[in-house]
């Protein structure tokens, strides 16, 4: 299919983009890489009356600003693969990028677009939640700082208001040595995930001192596994008892059944992915220790 008619507006700078978005309100959408929005438009699931092309805006930095990693909204996914700050501080982020779509999508898709689209099993929303990111939403009224846990409200629904757009995401840099892993299962490589699990751990000596676990596929938004995070703290890297933790987490969720799997299948799958991801993260810590 082909998209419905719309007005096309090329923004020359951020103030121009925000003025256009303020003018169009609910009828306007920013256009970045177009890897999520344009499929929705082609399928007529989205029919914005106006597109504001923001590709010329300079929102392209990945840089350390004090205690946070600042990622501009227009950073394309492939850049994380060669970024030393991502590799050093956010190993689960780095692993997750390999699961985003495929190389052609990673060349063009942006973090602002991915999190604004908020596909239930997309990798970057999960990574934002895993690392307690803050999302900067800008409008002509100023900037709003929204915690990732308050940003993703449902499938394709976020806390963004009409006239707002994501301009940056900030990731707090973990204070201690960190390890992490991200594992996903889909029907084929490059396809949408059925479920995925991300783990970020801090450790000292051989003991886990901080833990975060995120899961896609359990609900229509990514969720944190808070209960089992607490269980991981204090355990040894070489004996995290990940299988029991996976089972315990699986028992706390009630996934929906759909075309790609029954509720029971997803529950089992998420338990297993949790085990594998914890073990992978611990293994990587032991190798670098």
């Amino acid at each position: 299919m082909r998209p419905a008619s719309f007005g096309y507006h090329k923004a020359t700078d951020l103030a121009h983009a925000l003025a256009l978005l303020a003018e169009f309100g609910d009828d306007g959408r920013p256009l970045a890489g177009g890897q999520s929005l344009v499929p929705m438009m082609n399928l007529r699931l989205a029919r914005p009356a106006h597109l504001v092309d923001i590709n010329a805006l300079p929102l392209t930095a990945i840089e350390r600003r004090g205690d946070v990693l600042h990622v501009g909204a227009l950073v394309r996914h492939h850049r994380y693969l060669s970024d030393p700050l991502i590799a050093a501080h956010f190993p689960a982020f780095l692993e997750a990028v390999h699961w985003i779509g495929h190389p052609t999508i990673r060349n063009h898709g942006s973090i602002g677009g991915s999190i604004s689209h908020a596909d239930p099993t997309a990798e970057l929303p999960a990574i934002c939640l895993l690392y307690d990111a803050t999302i900067i939403a800008s409008s002509t009224g100023g900037d709003r700082r929204i915690a990732a846990r308050d940003f993703f409200l449902g499938a394709y629904v976020t806390a963004l208001q009409p006239g707002e757009m994501v301009t940056a995401v900030e990731f707090p840099i973990p204070p201690a040595k960190s390890t992490g892993a991200f594992i996903e299962l889909g029907e084929r490589r490059g396809d949408f995930a059925i479920a995925s699990v991300g783990v970020a751990l801090q450790w000292s000596g051989r003991q886990i001192t901080g833990a975060a676990v995120v899961c896609c596929g359990a609900r229509l938004v990514p969720i944190r596994a808070s209960e089992v995070e607490n269980l991981l703290i204090g355990r040894q890297l070489d004996a995290p008892d990940a299988a029991a933790i996976g089972r315990r987490f699986a028992n706390t969720i009630e996934p929906v059944s759909d075309h790609s799997g029954s509720s029971a299948y997803r529950k089992h799958l998420i338990g297993e992915l949790t085990r594998r991801t914890i073990e992978r993260a611990c293994q990587q810590a032991l190798e670098t220790a």
């Binding site: 096309y8 256009l31 177009g34 082609n42 597109l51 092309d53 052609t104 999508i105």
Partner: peptide, 11 residues
């Protein structure tokens, strides 16, 4: 490489 079905000619 770019998917020409996800790109508008005006861009």
């Amino acid at each position: 490489p770019r998917l020409s079905c996800l790109t508008f000619a005006v861009q």
